[in-house]
Design a protein around this nucleic acid. Sequence first.
DNA 1: AGACAATACGGAGAGTGTCTCCGTTTTGCA
DNA 2: TGCAAAACGGAGACACTCTCCGTATTGTCT
Lengths: 180, 180
Amino acid sequence: MRADAQRNRDKIVEVARQVFREKGYDAPLDEIAKKAGVGAGTLYRHFPSRDDLHDAVMQAWADGVDVATEKALAHEGDSREVLLDWFRTYVGLVSSYKGSPAKITSAMGDPDSPIRTKCQVLSAANAKVIERLGDALRPGIEPVQMARLIGGVATVADTASLDAEAVDPLLAVVADGLLA
Amino acid sequence: MRADAQRNRDKIVEVARQVFREKGYDAPLDEIAKKAGVGAGTLYRHFPSRDDLHDAVMQAWADGVDVATEKALAHEGDSREVLLDWFRTYVGLVSSYKGSPAKITSAMGDPDSPIRTKCQVLSAANAKVIERLGDALRPGIEPVQMARLIGGVATVADTASLDAEAVDPLLAVVADGLLA
DNA sequence: AGACAATACGGAGAGTGTCTCCGTTTTGCA
DNA sequence: TGCAAAACGGAGACACTCTCCGTATTGTCT
């Protein structure tokens, strides 16, 4: 990749991260281009779709997922505690900006999604949690199912602007359901 | 209301119902206006926002909710059966078109939402179910919490185009969590 | 019936966002 | 240094939302 191309790409991703966080996933792409000091054409050449840009933006985020998983797994306590702790972490991770819980959750399980890379990280994290809890969990739970349950809660929390206090009881219900 | 106004209003709602179903909640309003044979101004005068139109479209739908509730409550069987039956019904009701689960679920609990009328019907239905199940349910469950849990599942199912087979296990987890 | 407010209509057009096309500029290699 | 390939960038075509206001329709009063 040519040096100027790389430079522009990096700049776009950096600006996009910030704009997405401020204005949500629906922020105008032209605005991102302008703030990055490039033309619209340049942005669209690097990232043909919004999701492609989103994927690039979430690169750093994906690393954080691993760290967070380790932390939740290191947590000493009974299964319910571990599960709840992970769920809270998960909701936090997946709610990077307005609209992201829905995007990430629906991309999960779609083999053609441009942001699939990042979803696999989450899937892997869920798999680890499932493995750690072992027999305490109801049998036959798949990582993607866990992702959908918690992703659903996170999506509702996102679109309805719920605070942690309102979300926690919902997570508790799901946790108990999974431990049943 | 003047006769021509009533005529146009009815026509718009009729067309909107059909277009929403075909193209989802995001369908262009101008297209609805055109298909209804009215100008854009007329549509926007009758329904200042998309949600206002959505609300009108869901009028008939709201009646169906009552019927469905009665049916689910009449269901003989253990609590789990009743709950699961109601959840399946709920998901069906709330998924009238692409985007509607998210809309309806987030409107629930927002006192200023234009589609609040319709959400109250669902809230009332949930309250009835909760009452019917009584002590079998975990204590302190609010209708709106139930709406958020199932609405979350429905939203994920909607955006990820899941079929009933994939949704059912998720509902089972939530049901067991609520019965815990 | 005829006339006159009041009410409603409708579409042009301004504002905003998406995405492409292509003439111009930059880069890297020989 | 020169030149072809690669990348740029912004004008503009297209799409959707929403408003404004001149025109048409309706209901009422005589």
